[in-house]
Nucleic acid binder design. Structure first.
Lengths: 137, 137
DNA sequence: ATAGACCTTGTACCAGGGTATATGGTCAAG
DNA sequence: CTTGACCATATACCCTGGTACAAGGTCTAT
């Protein structure tokens, strides 16, 4: 049931060094060790790695990923804190979605202009993208 | 009408060094120079910088931004190439949006569990996020 | 008991995306 | 005609997120 670091790395398709790096960074809990000092992981570790990688692809920094991972629902006390943090994250994600949608619309307009092949000889993306200038952040 | 590098940097709120760096990287065309060697920019340069910054925030690398900027509608010939690349970018953006929406829903579930005071005691975000494991890329 | 594949720590290096600093030229105002 | 705010190049440094390498311990199979 316990996995070695190599097995975890392999299953999640990341470098062994990366796992140790995450451990140093605090994204990974320090695992139990065998008497010989080998790290021992549960299957959960693989899911955690995949989650980290996935969140990174979505543009979250390791710091942000760490905060995401810290969100857990536990008994009473810290519950409202967690909820507040979670809702903040939702806002961040929502804003990112909006920005990407705007970017997508812009790209679509570009593609459309291209299809219509107006011989507007000198029509750089820049012109099409002009409304990126007044994006709210 | 011609702007100095400092004016451009100021207007787009980036470091002067960054503009020169982009020039070296090929993201910025080499500008005309005054007899004294000062770079001269048109207003367009500011829009270009803002576009770069924005695209970066959306998770595009400078390499990708460069590709985006290279997508220009020129006289006929390259037009379908441009369109194809643009549609590829749209696909990437679309997938990213879908993934973020999934993440958002997950976070919303987490927040809801929190509100309901359903203290799923030892429920790390990983469990909640289980469906991240089989995302298609 | 020895090879080979694994694990350990430590240190060093890499790429991407800048930012800072040193040294010197330019230009407008007083 | 000098001072301050700009510009130029060149070089060095910074942070993030890893990856590689060295020196050595462990474990399994033969």
């Amino acid at each position: 049931m316990a996995l070695t670091i190599g097995q975890v790395a392999n299953a999640a398709d990341v470098n062994i060094q990366t796992i140790r790096y995450y451990e140093r960074r605090g994204l990974f809990p320090t695992p139990r060790r065998t008497p010989a000092g080998y790290r021992q992981y549960a299957d959960e570790a693989v899911a955690r790695l995949r989650f980290i990688k996935h969140a990174q692809e979505l543009g979250f920094s390791l710091q942000e990923v760490q905060e995401l991972l810290a969100l857990r629902v536990r008994h009473g006390a810290a519950c409202d804190v967690v909820e507040r943090k979670t809702r903040q994250k939702i806002e961040v994600v929502q804003q990112r979605i909006r920005d990407l949608q705007r970017m997508k619309r812009t790209l679509e307009r570009l593609a459309a202009a291209c299809t219509a092949r107006r011989p507007t000889d000198d029509c750089p993306i820049l012109e099409v993208l002009e409304d990126h200038d007044h994006i709210s952040h």
